[in-house]
Amino acid sequence: MINFEALPIIDITKLFSADLADRQGVAEDLGRAAREVGFFYVRGHGISAARIAGLRAAAEALFAHDHEWKMRAHIGLGRGHKGYVPEGSEVYGTGKPDHKEAWDIGFEASDDHPFVRAGQPLIGGNKWPDQPGFREAVSAYYDDVFALGRRLFQGFALALGQDEHAFDALVTCPPSKLRLIHYPVDLSAQDAPGIGAHTDYECFTLLLADQPGLEVLNGAGQWIDAPPVTVEDEELFVINVGDMLEVMTAGQFVATTHRVRKVKNERYSFPLFFAADYATKIKPLPEFDPTGEKTAQYPDISIGDHMWSMALQTYAYLAERVAKGELALPENAVGTKAFGQFKTLAEAEAQ
């Protein structure tokens, strides 16, 4: 990882081209950014301003409801780990509760879906609030940003020397969560975390935010601002590598540590965490680990169990159930600081 001072911007317009050479050219840019930074902006993504505006309006109306109304759809009610997440419910790198509230939406799966019937955590239907137009606006945005995620996954496949459709079959009904996150106004938040330092658990993240606050850790250990960027009236998405792409590349792509800080103004953030299907075992591709030595350094765990284990360790209501013995971490689960710069630091300290 280089000592970057700003995130690169990649025009992915040609990722939608019918010409493979065009798509390969974009893929090379994606691969370079993933190796050197782990974070980058994309333009030419094709998601309309109207779709984004609809999402924002739905989120603003949602979080304007009173606490009691929102708590009727608390994330801990029912199955599937979806719904309202009140402020203080999550603890990341600081060990302190995060200063935000959220509403979590997942890939829609009916009760008779095989993954639901198999009891996979994180898979199932969503909690849709009784708010006119909310489901329509949020579902439409989810469909668009998820389709963009599929296209980027194909680009990453090309960047890794694979057929561009090599990963398509891994994504049929994944635990890919869209979070609508609201940071309230807090003028005292100069040194208070919004979300503590962490890596993302999935393959990669597609983020849209309306205010500064996101900071990314570079190779020199410096926190670099990653504010919202608009180019020619197009809001750019921030893309970042997650734990599972780090595993697939045996560490060539790094899950870059990041946090949210300095949240003085009201802020809305919309990350889509793009994942493969729950039972998918993610391990280094053979060309990145021909001897199998690096594979042994990563936990033998499915992407879903990794995500579920992270949830069990960061959401207060789940951590309480683990402490009571009602739930248990999946086999081979690791701590929340096992990837990215956390992993690099741990390896250095062990030497």
Rank of each mutant, 00 (worst) to 15 (best):
E60K: 06
Q341L: 07
I12N: 08
A275P: 07
I282R: 09
F273C: 03
H99G: 04
L207R: 11
F115R: 11
H113A: 06
T257F: 03
G95H: 02
T256G: 15
V171E: 07
I195G: 03
R43Y: 00
H65W: 11
T13W: 02
D22M: 01
F204S: 13
L236Y: 10
D143W: 00
I181E: 09
L148I: 03
G196Q: 13
A64G: 01
L62E: 12
D300Y: 11
L7N: 12
G95F: 01
Y201S: 14
F204G: 13
H67E: 14
G78Y: 12
T172V: 14
V216N: 10
E293L: 09
G133Y: 06
T199Y: 03
L55M: 15
A33F: 13
A64P: 02
A197T: 12
A350K: 14
L180P: 15
G125Q: 07
L77Y: 09
V26F: 04
P114F: 13
F253P: 10
A319H: 15
D98V: 01
F339Y: 13
R321S: 02
G95Q: 02
D289E: 10
G124R: 03
L245E: 08
R32Y: 00
Q162Y: 08
Y141A: 03
W69M: 05
N265W: 01
V263C: 15
R51L: 09
E287K: 15
D112W: 05
G304V: 11
V26E: 05
D243T: 08
I52M: 11
M248W: 15
A18H: 06
P271L: 05
D210V: 05
I303A: 12
L208Q: 07
D22Q: 03
V42T: 10
Y183I: 05
F16Y: 15
P299V: 09
P184N: 12
F146E: 08
G25H: 10
G83V: 03
L152P: 07
S269K: 10
Q131Y: 00
K262G: 11
F167V: 02
I12K: 03
G304E: 14
Y41Q: 06
V238K: 05
G196T: 12
M248E: 10
A350H: 13
Q341H: 14
D243F: 07
F4S: 04
V171K: 06
T256W: 05
R117L: 13
G106P: 11
V231P: 08
E232Q: 14
P271T: 08
D163M: 01
S48Y: 05
I195D: 06
R179D: 10
Q162T: 04
T230I: 13
I75C: 02
E347L: 08
D111Y: 06
R135K: 15
R79H: 05
Y315F: 14
Q222E: 15
I282W: 08
W223I: 03
W223L: 01
H65M: 09
G95W: 02
G325H: 13
